[in-house]
Design a protein around this nucleic acid. Sequence first.
DNA 1: TCGATAATTCGACTATCGCCGAAATGTCGA
DNA 2: TCGACATTTCGGCGATAGTCGAATTATCGA
Lengths: 114, 114
Amino acid sequence: MLLPDAVAALSALAHGHRLTVFRLLVRAGADGLPAGEIAREVGVLPNTLSTHLTILGHAGLIQSRREGRSVIYSADYDGMRGLLGFLVSDCCAGRPEICAPLMGLAACCEVDAK
Amino acid sequence: MLLPDAVAALSALAHGHRLTVFRLLVRAGADGLPAGEIAREVGVLPNTLSTHLTILGHAGLIQSRREGRSVIYSADYDGMRGLLGFLVSDCCAGRPEICAPLMGLAACCEVDAK
DNA sequence: TCGATAATTCGACTATCGCCGAAATGTCGA
DNA sequence: TCGACATTTCGGCGATAGTCGAATTATCGA
């Protein structure tokens, strides 16, 4: 991931509603959620939400697929990993002790964790 | 970390110059860098950089200390970890296979890595 | 084919962000 | 104490982001 892509992804998440939507989709998993339900859940007008979803999509953080008259949105875990990887890249600069505290983040996947 | 704090941190990083500055400081380690050198390195006017540094500081991503007539800025690794932790929190939702690909990010600290 | 539902696109308005020049503040050496 | 250096603060300007109402597109059931 290049810096402009990272800026786009960070800008996409740098908004209360969009960040809420993204986290909602991250938790929803691969099944995703229809746009209407997201709008209801987050409490934002459908047209406004649509622009937010477009921004998140362009940033590579979410995907969409059509199912009947609904459009289902789901998190793009590859994009998410790309952003996180960019943020921690070169954090060590030869000093493992510096970013050692960052280890353990992935432990969120452990059973019983959190 | 609460959502408003995460939005503040993401907004702080959602800017080309600020993201560049942050990465520079992350690599610089605990020693940090004086404001003037950062300005030269990034290629931005001192007064403009100052506002950027203030924003990053308020977001809890960098710290500053005075040394003589210089002000030394350095990355706040705690704040950084807080943001990353927030982004991956609850990503599993009981489905370890979903965010399993996120594991290995912390491998940046491994010797020989990157 | 028609009406209803779901979602998006368009146009316009307001608020906020980012930048710069100029001035002010803080610190040190002579 | 004074002048020089490093950084910050302040003012105003142009550009961009966010929101909304209204209109448009897409899909389904009858």
